[in-house]
Each structure stands twice: as C-alpha cells, then as structure tokens.
Design a protein around this nucleic acid. Structure first.
Length: 235
DNA sequence: TCATTAATGTGTT
DNA sequence: AACACATTAATGA
C-alpha cells in the first residue's frame, strides 16, 4: 500500500480532499518504529505530530512510585503527539510502541497551517481529543480506585474493544463469545499497564479463567465481553 | 534433539 | 506486594 492511501485511512484525515493529502504526504515522512521503542517521553521536546499507520501504541504516565499507569491505547489510523500533552496535561506522557509500527511524522507548525486552511479539520480534531480525554480520565479513575482484579478486567475489556478479534477457537464450554485480543502481551506487560505486579496479574487471571470470564494461553487472552461487562457494572 | 531462556505458577513472608 | 523457587513453553544451536 502506498503512503497516500495510508494517509487517507487516518481517521482524522479521511474526509480530506486528495490535494490536502498530497500536501501532508510531502510534509510527513514515514518511518518504522520497533516494538518497545519510546516514541515520546517527557523530556524529549515534541513539536511534532504522529500519524499511526500500522501497529499499536500505548500512552502512559509514571507515578511517584515509578509505576506505569496506562492512559490509553491507540491503533492504526490514530493521531498522537503534541496534542496529547495538552489533553493529558503537563503530566509526564510516554508513548510506547506495543509492536513494530509505522508512523508518519509531521511538524506541529505544518499541521497548524493545515488546520487554519481547513477549519472543519480543527473541529474534528477537537471532538477526537475531547473523547480521548474522557477515556483517559476514566482509565485513571479506574486505576486509582479499584483492586487488581477489577483493573485487569477493565483493561482487558478495553483491549478487546480496541484491538479485539473474534476468537475462532473459543472454548464452547464457556457459553459467552470470547473475543481474543489481537496483541500479544505477557503478564508482566499487563501488570505494567495497570500498575500492578506480574504475580498479582497471574493470580488474577487464573481466577478470572476459573470463573469463565477469560480463556488464556501463553501470551494469548480471550475475554467474554458480556460477562466482563456485567462484572464491571455496565450492562 | 538438547540446552538455554522466557513466561508463567505457586507458596511464603 | 515482593520474593524465591518450581514448572512449562518457546527458541535456536
């Protein structure tokens, strides 16, 4: 797939005329990012915007104790960068590639020019960001006040909603449709996302598996969204 | 296939 | 939650 058709798939940009896409294309070189790379960290000066073309990234902060707290997860077609530092506040924001990814980088100034030229784009950006802000707050709330089991279930549900796959080999014993998460994560990685420990996550997961809420294999988890939803209190 | 490493499970403090 | 140790799966000579 060429770069231009990639650009047209960025959700923010999808309704722009081709000429604009060409312009952006010229301003935004594409680059590969390896899994685990920090695309953004608090001390690096980020006067750029990123279009995520391929792969997943995780937005997180770090608390006093040095624990990571996941603020959001983004998939293909998302945009991140300078905008986040607004929304999430001055708080230290990290963006990490959850897998090998491709991003397009555009200077903030260039993007601002574009926004002035296309006001409707600015409006879309605002609604997109405010929505993301809501999600961040929800996530942080959840992380702050719930126990590991709850936090984990919440995270899994979110992962499924964002990156879910229908699990072709869902175990029929469990009535509900288990949706498999299309990201391979270890218990350690999950723990980091919810500010917990690997052991606690392992334990919580086996517990959830016993209850039929999830099924799992190595680096593989499927969630019964129906049951998980009930458990989280939104029927 | 065997050895090494990574991921996970479990019991104890 | 942290640690130590056991078990099992993945990796690659």
């Amino acid at each position: 797939m060429n770069k231009l058709s990639y650009l047209s798939q960025i959700n923010l940009l999808e309704e722009l005329p081709v000429e604009d896409l060409r312009m952006i294309d010229a301003m935004a070189p594409m680059m590969a990012v390896e899994k685990g790379t920090l695309v953004i960290s608090p001390h690096m000066e980020t006067r750029r915007l990123y279009f995520l073309k391929q792969g997943r990234v995780r937005l997180y902060t770090v608390n006093e104790a040095g624990k990571q707290l996941t603020i959001g997860l983004l998939g293909e077609g998302s945009i991140f960068g300078e905008t986040e530092t607004f929304t999430v506040g001055a708080g230290f924001l990290y963006v990490e590639a959850l897998e090998n990814a491709m991003v397009c980088v555009i200077a903030k100034e260039d993007f601002e020019m574009l926004l002035m030229k296309r006001p409707q784009l600015a409006l879309r950006l605002i609604s997109l960001l405010s929505q993301r802000l809501r999600e961040s707050e929800e996530m942080l709330q959840n992380l702050a006040f719930q126990d590991v089991r709850h936090r984990l279930l919440y995270l899994l549900a979110k992962l499924v909603r964002n990156f879910g796959l229908k699990d072709s080999r869902a175990v029929p014993i469990h009535s509900g449709p288990h949706a498999k998460i299309d990201v391979n994560l270890t218990h350690q990685e999950l723990a980091d996302m919810i500010g917990s420990t690997r052991e606690s996550v392992s334990a919580a997961l086996s517990q959830l598996a016993k209850e039929g809420l999830v099924t799992m294999g190595r680096k593989e988890i499927a969630v019964d969204l129906g049951k998980a939803g009930e458990m989280l209190g939104d029927p």
